[in-house]
Design a protein around this nucleic acid. Structure first.
Lengths: 200, 200
DNA sequence: TCAAAAGTCAAACATTTGTTCTATTTTTAC
DNA sequence: GTAAAAATAGAACAAATGTTTGACTTTTGA
């Protein structure tokens, strides 16, 4: 490797670290002091090269205007709801226990703001590979397709089941022979389970 | 809410958005132009208040030195390994298909650099709630405790099984009555399964 | 309502910061 | 090894950016 290419690497690394630590990028002089360059003109030339190579973007004459064009991994950010208070919408502030982040690619292409997570209680879906304590990632929606796994409110409690609808008659099917399907009244779909996460 | 408190909120929001979009924080003048304040002195006073309130940190006389003290959700970042090439270490560059991010709280307290993910093939662990196609998050380690779920190399293929060891005799137990345990030779543990993620 | 407190504004200033220029030194490539 | 190219350095300059001051206006709270 050429000596100057090593320097380019060093400068890029310094910018990344500085920005991470400070919350804002370094100045040319701060860079020069930290990569063993006495001249800020040298720094400028390196930054010009880094920009040409696509590693950074700059805006002329603006201070600290180094924009690292890093390839961030896309993520979604959603709340974890705990015990759902009777009568409240499921995403009400007081139901939210925590917030989590996961890579967008781990779920489908869903709108960030319509996702939430729910801890599954009980073993009624165990034959679908959903265990007690698993975290279900849910997309808020008022209806799901037959055979999909839904989160539904049944008498003010959230439950995870297979959803079926036949002539306006809704039934929620467990995946466990020990349980009976739930049918009929007071069932409202609040979302579709799009992912399951289990901590072992 | 006081009128000035609303302004504080607006300014904070603007700084967050600007920083996210640009990669560096705004100047006082850029803020003043975007929150309907004609005087940069007003901006300074608000920033001083925001700093006193702990929302930002500044460094005197430095341009764009607004450090948002946002409470980021802690995450871990790890590679997804695909088909493991025979003879190669599992984390070899050519085995890595992708990189993912998840909240640290979704797994135990493990070292970021020792984690990887692996797509589970087959239904041999189905009674443990691990389905074909599930993503296993794995912590690299050479040994696991009896009864834990391990990733082991058996004849150059990675497999997920319950691990048992009795007098130096290792056996890997499936969670499916249709399969037999694997015993004996050519088994090396590469990690412990710490989480399961399933996209539905 | 009314006085005090808080907020806003404009302008001048001090400091930082990016840019340009020229000369010198080092590195590269044949 | 040698000449051309590249990199470095120092300094002067231009532009931007944060700070301070003082007067004016609006908001707040009794």
């Amino acid at each position: 490797m050429k000596k100057s290419e090593q320097k380019m690497q060093d400068i890029l690394s310094f910018i990344e670290e500085y920005t991470k630590n400070s919350g804002y990028p370094p100045t040319y002089r701060e860079i020069s002091a930290n990569v063993n360059l006495k001249s800020i003109n040298s720094v400028k030339k390196y930054l010009d090269r880094l920009e040409l190579s696509g590693y950074i973007k700059k805006s002329g004459f603006k201070s600290r205007s180094i924009d690292l064009v890093k390839q961030e991994i896309p993520t979604v950010n959603f709340p974890v709801v705990g015990r759902v208070a009777a009568g409240q919408p499921i995403l009400a502030e007081q139901n939210i226990e925590d917030r989590l982040v996961i890579s967008s690619s781990l779920i489908g292409n869903y709108d960030d703001s319509l996702l939430f997570a729910l801890k599954v209680r009980g073993d009624s879906m165990i034959d679908a590979g959903i265990n007690d304590g698993d975290l279900a990632i849910v997309h808020s929606q008022n209806t799901v397709e037959n055979g999909e796994i839904a989160v539904a409110m049944v008498e003010d409690k959230a439950t995870v089941k297979y959803f079926y609808k036949n002539k306006d008659k809704i039934s929620l099917h467990p995946a466990n022979a020990l349980y009976q399907p739930i049918e009929g009244k007071n069932i409202s779909v609040v979302g579709k389970v799009v992912a399951i996460i289990r901590k072992i």
